[in-house]
Amino acid sequence: MDFVINALPLYWEGALLTIRLTLFGAVLAFVLAVVVGTLGTVRNRTARAVAMVYTEVFRGVAALVLLYWFGYSFVEITGFRLTTEFAAILALGLNIGAYGAEVVRSSINAVPRAQTEAAVALNMTWWRRTRLVVFPQAWAQMLPTFGNLVIELMKATAIVSILGLTDLTKVANDFRASAVADTFTVYAVALVGYFLFAQVLIVLVRLLERRANRKLGRPTDDSLLGLLRPPSIGTTTGGAR
């Protein structure tokens, strides 16, 4: 127990990197997901092809492989060295962004066509239709899956420990290597840290979901316990609906 109390500040330092990577990775992934996902719904074939190539490539390659590529191979062909942290944000953002793009695309396609037609009848431009009518409705549908993705992203940040960055995982690895405490305690603390972080993320996404559903005039579960209910995992990939 003494070990845990004394070691907490160091764990916290590691956790800060984990949080930072999750945050920046999520921002990058979100932007990519919205842009590429929307591209996937337009009529222009070239735009759709670009969106498809991006999603297939970055969903297909493991985040760790991407990280090695950006961390080590990138400098060999460009002569430009990325910091490991930046490489990690790129790898994670591109990877999760590709999953997110599928979610955005299928959610937009799931908004009833009649909604677009009503917007055309009001003579709205494509941009206004998408921004004011289609996206707000798709948003409520995206959120639960985004919740799962941000947790996947958070978990995936642990890979930076393999490249020597001091995140929550690396702190635990170092403690174990220095044998200051037993293996079980050292890793249990790290795992609990990740678990708590995940719970915070779940609550945040739940709050966003409630807001989105309220805006659509849908009933929301306003209980406190409802906030902690983890989002259920989708049973289909994007696409098929």
Binding site: A114, A118, V120, Q137, L216, R218
Partner: peptide
Amino acid sequence: RKTIGMVFQQFNLFPN
């Protein structure tokens, strides 16, 4: 099409 308005069978109000 500015000069044309339409009312649909299923209303199609914007829920958001």
